[in-house]
Design a protein around this nucleic acid. Sequence first.
DNA 1: GCAGCTAATGAATGAAGCTCAACAGCGGTC
DNA 2: GACCGCTGTTGAGCTTCATTCATTAGCTGC
Lengths: 235, 235
Amino acid sequence: MTARRSFARLPRERRVGDILDAARSVFAEHGYENAGMSTIAEQAGVVEGTIYKYFANKRDLLNQVLSRWYEGMVADQNDQLAGIVGTRSRLRFVIWRHLKTIATEPALCRVFFLEVRAAGEYHASDLHVLNRGYTRAAVAILREGIATGEVRPDIPVRLVRDIIYGTIEHHTWDYVCGRGGLHVEELADDLTRVVLSGIGSRCEAEPGTADRLERVADRLETLMARAGRDGGASS
Amino acid sequence: MTARRSFARLPRERRVGDILDAARSVFAEHGYENAGMSTIAEQAGVVEGTIYKYFANKRDLLNQVLSRWYEGMVADQNDQLAGIVGTRSRLRFVIWRHLKTIATEPALCRVFFLEVRAAGEYHASDLHVLNRGYTRAAVAILREGIATGEVRPDIPVRLVRDIIYGTIEHHTWDYVCGRGGLHVEELADDLTRVVLSGIGSRCEAEPGTADRLERVADRLETLMARAGRDGGASS
DNA sequence: GCAGCTAATGAATGAAGCTCAACAGCGGTC
DNA sequence: GACCGCTGTTGAGCTTCATTCATTAGCTGC
């Protein structure tokens, strides 16, 4: 990690790896704008020009740093998700996993949220594809939930996906900027609950409540009627 | 608007206004990074140095452009909101209003979403205060809803606020980047509905449930009234 | 051990934000 | 109405930083 001008011809893989490691650490520490190519070069033990042998420009370097990071995350998430059943549990896991990532790597997340989508070429980039792969899990869970009847069939699936990721991004912004804490478990619970049940009070009744109450009323009416007959007969 | 070197000593207000107008248009067209101070200066009919007489630096200029824009929006929103009653309607209005702003000024919104929070000084800036004033409306509506019983009292109010603004920001990103359309009315309906009712099927509590419950209550009241009369007469 | 290939260098380039010493219009004073 | 100081305005120049490129030097095949 410490800077040392090597002037050794390393295998391409190793050089690229060194540069990506250095770039990741410098981007995380200083953000995109304030990260200098010279700093990255120094930390990677090369000279600025060398970086341009392997990366087209600063933005490309950032994209590749984040791509490498993302690839691991997507694979990891899908592995773990395979062992979880039930719409609620699976949805909570996806939410919890995302929050956990933010809690663990706030600095890199900050760069991702801020800088990646800034580039006009985002839609053509690897990162866009990876991001879709990552959020696809949530969409799949919702579709399964609809199939099993745990989720209403008329909900706009993509909007709900955006509710999950948009809310988390918005809510964790202060933490990501180094302000305040992040209560991962509590937040995961709250968001899962609100997404599944909404905030309205009218939804608290289980289905069938009206039926049951009507039967209760029937029984009371029957009782009253009988009481009325008895009372009438005795008087 | 066309560039003309004036060398006239304009009143401070007018100069500042010219520069802000030019900056707004250039930032909207090119984004922050690709907007040149020289371009802004040219369009404002001054020389680069003049801008630094009134604004500390490029970022400060952007902040003031957005502050001026925001101030109008906040006042406007609160005015219109004053004429709307009912939690559902008020919540939908806030959502609709935000979407409408994005639909009308996607370029400025893009700059705001991307750049403003990038600065470390965001938390100390006017914009942060304005933003809190803007989103406070949603929080107030939720608290009123809890008071009137239309909203469950145990919901995390600030999380719901972030659901509203985070979801909108996330969902409209493609549109804001110039890709695809934006169906404001449909989106406002969907988001309002999901926030109020959630996505879970147990909440389906068939339409008409409330009516039926009220009829049950009517029947019970009738029974009680009759029981009271009969009981009183027989004793 | 030589030749050729190319990774690696580092000084040079150019663009963009920002500074500053000098200039010019304006208002007040005698 | 001429002088004087004040300050808005200028534009050349400084600095920083990404990016380039001619040159150098380690590796590999012959």
